[in-house]
Simulated assay, not measured.
Amino acid sequence: MQTATLSPSRFAFLWQPGLLPGLALTAALAAASTLLAQTPWLQQAGLSPLTLAIVLGMVAGNTFFPAIAPRTGAGVDFSKNILLRAGIILFGFRITFQDIAHIGWAGVLIAALVVACTFVLAVQIGTRLLRLDKQTAMLIGAGSAICGAAAVMAAEPVVKGQAHKVTVAVATVVVFGTLAMFLYPLIYPHLGMSEQAFGVYLGSTIHEVAQVVAAGAAVSDATASTAVIEKMMRVMMLAPFLVLLSGALSRGEGAAARRIVIPWFAVLFIVAAGINSLQWLPQAVVHAILQLDAALLAMAMAALGLRTRASSLRQAGLRPMLLAAMLFAFLLVGGYGINLAVTALLG
């Protein structure tokens, strides 16, 4: 087992023409998505800057970008690769190990079971029943199981997914995460759960952090607070998930490729979370890091959109959305069962 190394060949495009223009293009799209996300009606719809960035990127990618791709491609690919990994590392500053203490071991076990069951179901149903390729099934599974678009992007370098497959997976997160955001508050009165228990249920089964916040706030501030903490527990599982996924894929490639390569950005994600847990940095610095992180991830999403062709999405068909619908049903019903069972077992 070894950590993936940063070979000089991976950065060959740093010296290619078009780096700065491409970075400027993705930065402009990221800035536009951030501004749009602040409009009240888009906030109510739960559309994050990441979602809007990939939409704007797709619009540009299927209109004017092909004409300027030779002059901007290096910067777009830099955003899609290096800035993506940097954004995932800095994402670690959103969580602390102290979060575990707030939700207890029951919350930890619930998050672990939901993540494991959802991803395994995604791969099994996606490849066996729906005949999807393994990359698409794993990307949709990662997004549904852990933390939406951020998990899809984090899994992309491990599964080596193509841009249009990442876009399809993100689209499923948007559709069913948004549906969950409105549906969960409606069913709350019929579940017989306390506000705190319902918060754990929200955080353990809804896709995106922003969607968790919106759904929790529709019930109460206490529910929203508990939901976010449980959601952060799922986010903390991103790094070990990527390590295990890398190991499983390495074993599946045959005897000649049994060396397990640990994604270096997953290791640094844990380091970032550890530094944040120690509370060494002033809150103003952490806030600045999170702002930078949001910008880097939005630029990466914009780059993915720029490299996605509408024809590729049409070829994907309805099967990815059907898989996401099945996973959504499992999160809604199976996740509820997991919450009740673990709570009854551990209290």
Rank of each mutant, 00 (worst) to 15 (best):
E195I: 03
A284L: 12
A224Q: 14
P21R: 05
P320D: 14
V114W: 13
V243G: 00
A28I: 12
I88W: 12
R234F: 10
M181R: 05
V152A: 04
P8N: 03
A69K: 07
V261W: 10
T96A: 07
A69V: 12
C147L: 03
L186Y: 06
V76N: 09
I103H: 11
A155G: 07
N62D: 01
T26K: 05
Q291T: 15
P185D: 03
G161M: 02
I289Y: 09
I206A: 06
I100M: 15
R10P: 00
F269E: 02
A53W: 12
N276G: 07
T178S: 10
I88M: 03
G141A: 11
L242I: 09
L47R: 06
K134S: 15
F11C: 10
L322Q: 15
A273I: 02
L318A: 12
H287C: 04
Q211W: 09
D99G: 13
K134W: 04
M181A: 03
G274P: 00
F65T: 02
L191V: 04
V219K: 14
L318G: 13
K80S: 09
L83P: 02
L281K: 02
S312G: 12
L244V: 12
V59C: 02
W264I: 03
L130D: 04
L268E: 06
L186Q: 10
V286L: 01
L132P: 08
E253S: 15
P320A: 15
A69W: 01
H164E: 09
R314S: 11
I140Y: 07
S79C: 11
V115I: 05
A163K: 15
L130W: 06
F265C: 12
R234D: 05
L332V: 08
V212T: 15
Q196I: 04
S246F: 12
R258P: 07
A255S: 12
V219G: 11
P8L: 01
T118K: 09
L290A: 03
Q124G: 03
V342Q: 00
V267M: 11
P157E: 03
T34W: 07
A137L: 06
M181E: 04
M232V: 01
P70C: 03
A298D: 02
S312A: 09
A145C: 11
R94E: 05
F97S: 15
G254R: 06
L191D: 01
A255F: 12
V200H: 13
M321G: 14
L304M: 08
P263I: 00
A112W: 09
L42Y: 07
V267K: 08
I262Y: 15
A284T: 13
Y336E: 01
L139Q: 13
A116P: 00
N81S: 10
L332E: 03
F97G: 14
L83R: 14
V159G: 03
T172P: 09
A30H: 10
S144N: 05
P240H: 05
V271Q: 01
P282K: 01
L340G: 01
F119D: 00
M232C: 15
V108F: 13
R71C: 01
W41Q: 11
P189Y: 01
T172Q: 02
V59Q: 00
